[in-house]
Design a protein around this nucleic acid. Structure first.
Length: 431
RNA sequence: UCCGGAGUGGCUCAAUGGCAGAGCGGGUGGCUGUUAACCACUAGGUUGUAGGUUCGAAUCCUAUCUCCGGAGCCA
């Protein structure tokens, strides 16, 4: 048999006979010619089977091969400009590993529930395939970005002992003889890690028991969270901006084929360039009032507000300097005006919503204690965190980027459940 | 939890008070350049569930279950 290659390398073998191993994606039959659309997980290749080019038994496979049957197919690599891959295979021989039973997923429209029930098979389809390729590239890009900038990866635990921020959104689990909770964020642990490593990031799943049923929510999602000693809010925003630009450019550089499969309008991504617009919460309010929204000072922005603001810009928008009342206890008060905290949200264009939330952290133990008391948080659970303000406290900042929302924006997907291999939502725990 | 929408063949949908239908997928046959190929034939139904109104219910009413979209919350 001719040499076995991956389909993505087919262009390097023009005119040669090669063997591909993979699955039947589709078959188009005619009388004395048939076309086998083949995939091996690296590319989709059309294979042409001509009656006078193959043994009789191979030609007759047009009647036995079914969608998703596994095969080894050998043939001559030919240029085919009309093919997406640019090349096709003139078949010489086919060996069958397994004839698939009737495959449930047709190359036609299906409902969301059906496809999610069949997620273990749906992964093979072109759309999910391309999205997960891009997700993998973005994950790698996150690691590369921080590793190239003197950050140390310090992962945070999934099990946490207490109900730190609002217990209603925490998943509770049995931990031997007591209760534990699944982490919502690694931030507090990262604040400890930077005192050892100066700049760190953590990257892993987060769990939130929010009863949200929208296209922007999962109960299990991935977040990358950098934390930096000696960064103020402006340094924090500079880094967030550079990071988002880097991720988009990496996808454009290394995922052209996948973006093409998804029919993504890449001109919208190509125009993403620093500096991003930075507006304060007050300016955001003014824009919203001009657009007819009735929003009082102190109210947090909802999804419709975010979308309305992002409409005015073709870049991600950074909204900073938020009312203190609407934000978490650990955010630093604006020294110029106590009513505000030095937090920032980054809103993706095209209505994809908030992809980053970050802030300068409060380093003064007195202010932290006041806020813990005011919000009636269990002080004893934060003793270890308060230690960080007792032993060499420094100004510091950080942010968290939601992986699925970012991938959803870059891929232009309607719902972020398509941006994670095995989505977990309020109503879905399988497969 | 609240608001809105939808449940009909394996899948996607049509039928709005009067004979449950189409496309895809399956099966059979045809076709030498197809692009979610095409053409012909064919099998496949207790209309989510329970009750009610009616001569007659997929269709109207009540209850209930499931899913989808959105709000709040957030990445």
């Amino acid at each position: 048999m001719s040499p076995y290659i991956l389909a993505k390398h087919i262009s390097a073998h023009k005119g040669e006979e090669v063997t591909l191993k993979g699955w039947v994606y589709n078959i188009r039959k005619s009388g004395k010619i048939w076309f086998l659309i083949f995939r091996d997980g690296t590319e989709f290749i059309q294979c042409v089977v001509l009656k006078n080019e193959v043994p009789e038994a191979v030609f007759e496979m047009k009647g036995t091969l079914t969608q998703e049957s596994s095969i080894a197919v050998s043939g001559i690599v030919q240029e085919a400009p009309r093919q997406e891959a640019g090349y096709e295979l003139l078949v010489k021989n086919i060996e069958i590993y397994h004839i698939a039973e009737d495959y449930p997923i047709a190359l036609k429209d299906h409902g969301v529930e059906f496809l999610l029930d069949k997620r273990h098979l749906w992964l093979r389809s072109r759309g999910p395939y391309a999205i997960l390729k891009i997700r993998a590239e973005i994950e790698q890009a996150c690691r590369d970005f921080f590793n190239e900038r003197d950050f140390t990866l310090v992962d945070s635990p999934m099990f946490t002992p207490n109900a730190a921020e609002g217990s209603t959104t925490l998943f509770e689990t049995q931990y031997f003889e007591r209760k534990a909770y699944l982490t919502q964020s690694g931030q507090l642990y990262s604040e400890a890690a930077i005192m050892a490593h100066n700049r760190t990031y953590c990257f892993g799943p987060c769990f939130r028991a929010e009863k949200s049923k929208t296209r922007r929510h999962l109960t299990e999602f991935w977040m990358v969270e950098p934390e930096m000693a000696f960064f103020d809010i402006h340094d924090d925003m500079d880094l967030a901006e550079e990071f988002v630009e880097y991720l988009v450019h990496r996808a454009l550089k290394n995922c052209r084929r996948e973006l093409q499969i998804l029919e993504r309008d890449i001109s919208k991504l190509e125009s993403v360039k620093r500096p991003f617009p930075r507006i304060s919460y007050d300016e955001a309010l003014a824009i919203l009032h001009k657009k007819g929204f009735d929003l009082q000072f102190g109210e947090d922005l909802g999804a419709p507000h975010e979308t309305a603001i992002s409409e005015d810009f073709d870049q991600p928008v950074m909204i900073w300097r938020w009312p203190a009342a609407s934000k978490a206890f650990y955010m630093k008060r604006d020294p110029e005006d106590e009513r505000y905290v030095l937090g920032v949200d980054v809103i993706a264009p095209e209505g994809h919503g908030e992809i980053i939330g970050g802030s300068q952290r409060e380093e003064d133990i007195k202010v932290l204690l006041e806020r813990i008391e005011k919000e009636q948080l269990p002080k004893e659970d934060f003793e270890w965190f308060l230690d960080l303000r007792r032993y060499g406290s420094v100004p510091h900042s950080g942010f968290g980027l939601g992986l699925e929302r970012t991938v959803g924006w870059i891929c232009g997907t309607h719902h972020i459940r398509e941006c994670i291999p095995w989505p977990r939502t309020m109503v879905r725990l399988k497969p």
